[in-house]
Computed example of a mutant assay.
Amino acid sequence: MSTSVEGQKGAKGEDHWSSEAYQNAAAFVPKLATKVVGWLDVRDGDRILDVGCGDGVLNIQIAQALCKESGTGRIHGVDSSVAMITAAKEATAAIPRISGICTFEALDATLLHTDPELQKESFDKVFSNAAMHWILRPENRRDDFFKGVHKALKPGGIFVFEMGGMGNCAEMRTALLSTLSHRIGIRLARAADPWFFPSTTWMRRTLTSSPGGFEVLQLESEYRPTKAGEGGIRAWVILMGKQFFDVVEKEKGKEVREECEKEVEEVLRTVVRGDGGDGEEGEWIGYVRLRGVARKL
């Protein structure tokens, strides 16, 4: 969940995130990370860099595993949202046993390659969950991101990630783009789109051709309908669509913004209501997850 914010290292901008809003709209994200955390295969003594750590929920879970034996392992989380980093620090401070194992800093992930402390080839593993589809949105900064991950890893170190893949949340994205284009035009609507959802083909090609290179060990795309969080579709639309609506407000004013928020919500209620394929009625989002494991060459 990485976008530029005021107060982070190396970049300035608006913080689009709130820990409370995220819990209301998308608390399911860390809960559904079981498979990718399994691929991370946390070992005693591991030094892990978590890119796009959010509010630290998964860091706490991973730190518990790092504490089981020697307690020499460490996990360092970076996220561009100061609000999320603050929430993560507060959460870990309340658990003295792991407070020295979990550390956090606000940092734009596309600037990893500029941070001397994170470029010492000192991490056994780099981990990222549900963040890279935000991080990789600016096309001209994608190489910098992979360069930073590569340089952070020890020789032979492992990069484990999960993100939105091609077709992710297609109904949500379509409703947002369509609604905005009627007010501000498709060009501005596309420019406001904060996501990049690549295919497995794109990811394999990028990893193997990135500076230094990675060997792809596992790579898959999974269609995983996901039930909306406690706040339902409305909470998801308001939080995840914030950058779309900010542009509408800038161009057309607050009243038009509110019209767009309501329209997107109403359109989606027609589409997302159902049983998600498992018989449980509710509001379901068409998530597609792209996950992989790559070794630094």
Rank of each mutant, 00 (worst) to 15 (best):
E90R: 02
S18P: 03
A88V: 02
E117Q: 12
V256S: 05
E69P: 02
I60F: 00
S122M: 13
E222A: 10
W17F: 15
R257E: 13
T226R: 09
L290C: 08
P225G: 00
A63D: 15
G286P: 10
V78A: 00
A131T: 13
F146A: 07
K9I: 14
P198R: 13
V256Q: 08
A63R: 07
V264R: 01
T200F: 06
E283I: 03
S80R: 06
A294R: 01
A93D: 13
A65Y: 10
G7N: 07
V160I: 13
A170G: 09
G213I: 00
E215C: 14
G54A: 09
A294C: 04
A33D: 03
L219W: 00
E220R: 10
W202N: 07
Y287G: 05
E281A: 13
G185Y: 03
R190W: 13
I186Q: 13
S99T: 11
F123D: 03
E280T: 14
I158E: 11
S99E: 08
G45S: 07
W195L: 06
W39C: 06
A109W: 00
V272S: 02
K31M: 12
I75Q: 06
L219E: 08
F245E: 03
G157H: 04
E14Q: 12
T114W: 05
V293I: 06
E14D: 15
G185A: 02
T270D: 12
L118A: 10
E69D: 12
A25C: 04
L268P: 00
G73E: 10
E266Y: 05
V149M: 06
G13N: 06
M163S: 11
K250S: 13
G77N: 01
R234V: 12
L239K: 10
G277H: 08
